[in-house]
Amino acid sequence: MKQYSDLITGAVSLLIGIALLAMSIPIGIQENNLIGAAFLPEIVSVIIIALSLKLMYDGFRAAQDYEETVPEFVKNYKGTAVMIVACILYAELLKPVGFLITSIVFLFLTFCLMTKKEETNYLKLGALTIVSVFLIYFIFTKFFGIRLPAGILKGII
């Protein structure tokens, strides 16, 4: 897998380049203007396609003399995946549920994810979560006048 990383990068960007070109051409036709909204995207897509091909070629050659190295530690892909999902949920729920609740849940989860098992003290992390979120909320809403989404707590805070 790792030895093909440049090949994969090249292939993905090739697809992006082709997609960009495919979406730009109709815009150009619709606008009926050579140097219109589609002009620069078309140029960019051609450059991307050319460079992707070069990258794929280089990546293919590099893969031939690839040597596996022993990693010095185990990658924590599971944690990263959980985090990615949490990030998106946080952004999506921020408005309906509100800043305070989503932030408390997110921050606590992230603390737990980041802290090594043997060092985890849930009580301490929980307390830290509450204090930090309220402090951030306090600073931004009161001092900087930013109105954060209240969500379901609307009318209570």
């Binding site: 306090f138 809403t141 009161k142 001092f143 006048g145 009318g155 209570i156 805070i157």
Partner: peptide, 21 residues
């Protein structure tokens, strides 16, 4: 005032919230 209303507001806010709820 900013600091002041921040100090006072949790209580003030909750009381007004109470009436509206």
């Amino acid at each position: 005032l900013l600091a002041g209303c921040s100090g006072g507001s949790p209580s003030g806010g909750s009381s007004s919230g109470g009436s509206s709820s």
